[in-house]
Amino acid sequence: MTAVLEIEGLRKTYRSRRRGVRHALDGFDMLVEAGQVHGFLGPNGSGKTTTLRTLLGLIRPNDGRMAILGREVPAALPEVAGSVGAIVESPQFFPNFTAQDTLSLLAGAGGVPQTRVTEVLELVGLRDRSGERVKSYSLGMKQRLAVASALLKNPRLLILDEPANGLDPGGIREMRALMRDLAGSGMTVVLSSHILGEVQLICDSVTIISRGRRVAAGPVSEVLAQHAGHALRVRLDAAADLPAAAEALRQAGAEVTAEADHLMVYGVEQSSWVSRTLANRDLYVSELAPVTADLESVFLDLTATAPVPGQARQVDDSALVGGGEQATPESGGAPGGWGV
């Protein structure tokens, strides 16, 4: 396949009196092939938004190579800008403009035919509400309008930062279908999201970033296979026997995590070994089932953000609603779109 987006050894360092030297990006690599929906994942503060803003020429890197559609950026951004649609963080719209007026204005500024405005409003499900003022829109509707603005140029590469933010389950499903349809038409989509279940459903491949470095990349199925250990869920006839069963399996060489009503057993090649080991101790299995890894568990493990058992975990509110990294004075510039 042809690489649409290439990043090699990207570095970005910030300095401030309060925080000293901070490496937002520390030799980050990323490769996105044509026609894919590619998930770009990382915890808040991991470097996702810094990467996207650097790629689009909004931040100057300290080192590294970047290319879009085979052209080196930021030097070639004026040449490739017409083939790239992007929404990075939350774009701001004139509140008293209607969606129709907003997109018409953007289309005119970008030399896009006005007929395209109707097409993108239809694509994102806003055609029937296009005459209403943006200030009356819900957060989810504003997200749809943002995606519509990025689609105006019918780009070859579409970069979306948290496009499902504020959408209800029905809206998320519609957004998922839209992303798949766009990829099916030949467009390449880079999707940054905290909704990992959706990423697993929609994306062909992923890149996971943590503390400015790539920690995993490749097709979703391969990332799951490479980074998720083989696990078995074990239940016993008598729940009171769980502590004894856990100890027996650990003594026999397995890694065991005790849950409220079952055991999670790792590092076992044959599931029958578990039942035989426990039966030899007069402990009898009522359920023995392989546990399929999901992207969320792999992500939490790779980025060291999994909650510690018995310890409360502090969670950024933006992560709960799918929000991206927050703009700071160091990141440069206010939140906004990069569509037309």
Score class of each variant (00 low, 15 high):
residue 197 G to E: 10
residue 291 V to N: 00
residue 295 L to R: 07
residue 337 G to E: 11
residue 224 L to D: 02
residue 274 V to P: 00
residue 324 G to K: 02
residue 227 H to W: 04
residue 25 L to T: 10
residue 212 G to R: 06
residue 247 E to N: 13
residue 146 A to Y: 07
residue 2 T to H: 14
residue 16 S to E: 05
residue 308 V to W: 08
residue 194 H to W: 03
residue 77 L to Q: 03
residue 317 D to K: 07
residue 126 L to G: 07
residue 19 R to H: 13
residue 79 E to I: 08
residue 295 L to C: 06
residue 271 S to R: 10
residue 259 E to G: 14
residue 83 S to G: 10
residue 41 L to T: 02
residue 211 R to K: 14
residue 149 S to Q: 12
residue 173 R to H: 12
residue 183 A to E: 00
residue 118 T to A: 15
residue 171 G to Y: 03
residue 227 H to I: 01
residue 249 L to T: 05
residue 317 D to R: 10
residue 256 V to H: 05
residue 338 W to H: 15
residue 231 A to H: 06
residue 31 L to R: 15
residue 231 A to P: 00
residue 230 H to N: 11
residue 231 A to M: 11
residue 314 Q to D: 04
residue 170 G to W: 01
residue 171 G to L: 00
residue 248 A to T: 15
residue 256 V to C: 05
residue 263 L to W: 10
residue 232 L to W: 15
residue 7 I to R: 10
residue 274 V to C: 08
residue 55 L to Y: 14
residue 128 D to N: 07
residue 305 T to E: 02
residue 292 T to Q: 14
residue 303 T to S: 03
residue 199 V to A: 09
residue 317 D to F: 09
residue 242 L to F: 04
residue 125 G to K: 09
residue 266 Y to H: 11
residue 54 T to P: 02
residue 199 V to R: 04
residue 337 G to M: 09
residue 83 S to M: 09
residue 162 E to F: 02
residue 229 G to T: 13
residue 251 Q to K: 14
residue 272 S to W: 09
residue 288 L to Y: 08
residue 164 A to F: 05
residue 163 P to D: 01
residue 123 L to W: 11
residue 166 G to T: 02
residue 244 A to E: 12
residue 93 F to A: 07
residue 206 V to A: 05
residue 44 N to W: 02
residue 70 G to H: 09
residue 210 S to L: 04
residue 8 E to D: 11
residue 318 S to R: 13
residue 219 P to Q: 05
residue 61 P to I: 07
residue 261 D to M: 12
residue 295 L to A: 05
residue 178 L to D: 00
residue 309 P to Q: 08
residue 24 A to G: 06
residue 304 A to K: 11
residue 50 T to W: 07
residue 17 R to C: 00
residue 202 I to V: 15
residue 246 A to N: 12
residue 41 L to M: 05
residue 179 M to A: 13
residue 319 A to G: 01
residue 88 V to N: 02
residue 30 M to F: 10
residue 139 L to A: 01
residue 95 P to R: 08
residue 294 D to W: 00
residue 226 Q to N: 13
residue 219 P to D: 06
residue 156 R to V: 13
residue 260 A to L: 15
residue 306 A to G: 12
residue 99 A to F: 12
residue 57 G to M: 06
residue 253 G to E: 06
residue 237 D to K: 15
residue 13 T to Q: 08
residue 111 G to H: 02
residue 114 Q to M: 14
residue 333 G to C: 08
residue 220 V to D: 04
residue 17 R to W: 14
residue 91 P to E: 07
residue 291 V to P: 00
residue 184 G to C: 04
residue 54 T to V: 09
residue 17 R to V: 12
residue 56 L to P: 07
residue 106 L to T: 01
